[in-house]
Amino acid sequence: MAMILWRIFWHVTSYRPRPQKYSQSSTNTSHCIASGGKTVGVCTNGAASMTGRHSGVIRLIQDVAPEASWTHCFLHREALAAKEMSPGLAEVMDIAVKTINHLRKSALKSRLFAELCKEQDAEHTTVLYFAAVRWLSRRDALARLYELRDQVLAFLEVARSDLAVYFKNNKFIATLAYMADIFNLLNNLNISFQGKTNKQAKSVFVMYDKIAAFKSKLDLWKRRVQIKDEFDMFENLDDLLSKSVEERVDIKDVIVEHLVYLRKRFDEYFPVDPRVEKKWIRDPYSVDVQQCCNLSNRLKEDLIDIVSDSTLETLFRKDTLVKFWLTVSHEYPEIAHLAVKFLMPFTTTWICEAGFSTVTYLKSKYRNKLETVAVRQPENRIVVASKPNR
């Protein structure tokens, strides 16, 4: 399955034409699907080239494998939910980006700013660029700009820049601190989606657990800010406000507005929570079989047999979900097929993104003749393999 995703992503996103080899090797979608039409799920981003109704990759795959389901990558959805901001924060973000671009506009300005930072014993000597396509860069850029705010103000004043007035505004600085904190929390959520759990790709249950937890945190943070004026969950902002008690800036309305807006965006991108309807898959021994409305009577009988089997219960407590249902499939193939089909699809494109990042690192100007097509160089799979190299 990982091989399928790798090849689909490579050929769709590749920008270099391959006149004959490209058309012969994989523009035929069925060639990208293992064993003809046995694919049960495909995880991609939401780009039109992937999800197009008539000629998108998903449409072409489903023509060959009609039962294949599509999953919108959790990483991509989280990034889209966090991308748009409330008007107050959008304005601060725009000013922050203009300031960063101004400081790094030329090599001379960069060197002068670095010298200023060294003279003032700052921990860092440069600000970081913000790139919208790099989802985690927003927090890094904002955090560094907030950290060097005093040096930035001094430099802008000497340069007589119009941007200096913003860094004299306490509300602007407080909002910048909040943005560095909230996007740090969003980055932590995004990073938690990556990687594996128990050497296996994270299941949809694990992902929705994290999403539900973050939504609840947003509600909690909003109540604490709105009712109790508590900001300790936002480290930089809390530290800033504690140092300026006499001139405490009130940005409560800005924070509450953004938290409400962020919760709304998460509801839009994660509208359906399958954990209740599919609870019988995750823990068949804690559900009321009669309440499993999405199962036929025959499958309910099979589920009763499974729940009543103490040997299977022991295996359930010991093995992973996939291993458990694969074991069940020997005796109860129909209900096990439904469970495995739900658990098998990838929830993120992390394995592909990790592969691309590794290839980008390996294929430097000193080794630019390396072949990256998986068919011709199967060794590239090493970079995303779960087992360590020998």
Rank of each mutant, 00 (worst) to 15 (best):
M1L: 05
R7G: 05
V12N: 03
N28W: 04
V40N: 10
G41Y: 13
T44Q: 05
T44A: 00
N45M: 06
T51H: 04
V57N: 13
A65P: 12
E67F: 05
R77F: 07
R77C: 06
A79K: 08
L80F: 04
L89C: 08
D94H: 11
D94G: 03
K105L: 09
S110W: 13
R111Y: 09
Q120K: 15
D121N: 13
E123A: 06
T125P: 03
T126F: 09
F130E: 02
A143N: 00
R144S: 08
L145D: 05
D150N: 11
Q151Y: 08
Q151G: 06
L153E: 14
F155P: 14
S161Q: 02
D162V: 13
V165W: 03
F172N: 14
I173P: 08
T175I: 03
M179Y: 01
M179R: 00
L185E: 04
L185R: 14
I191G: 01
I191K: 13
G195C: 11
K199M: 14
Q200K: 12
V204F: 07
M207I: 14
M207D: 00
A213S: 15
K217R: 14
L218I: 06
L220P: 04
D229E: 08
E235D: 10
V249H: 13
V254Q: 04
E257W: 08
F270G: 09
P271A: 15
D273V: 06
E277D: 11
K279W: 11
Q291A: 03
C292W: 07
N294M: 09
E301W: 01
D302I: 00
D302C: 00
I304M: 12
V307E: 12
T314C: 06
D319T: 12
T320N: 02
L321A: 01
V322S: 10
E331K: 13
L338D: 15
A339G: 07
P345F: 02
F346K: 01
A354N: 15
K363M: 10
V375A: 10
I382L: 14
I382D: 05
V383Q: 05
V384I: 15
S386Y: 08
P388T: 06
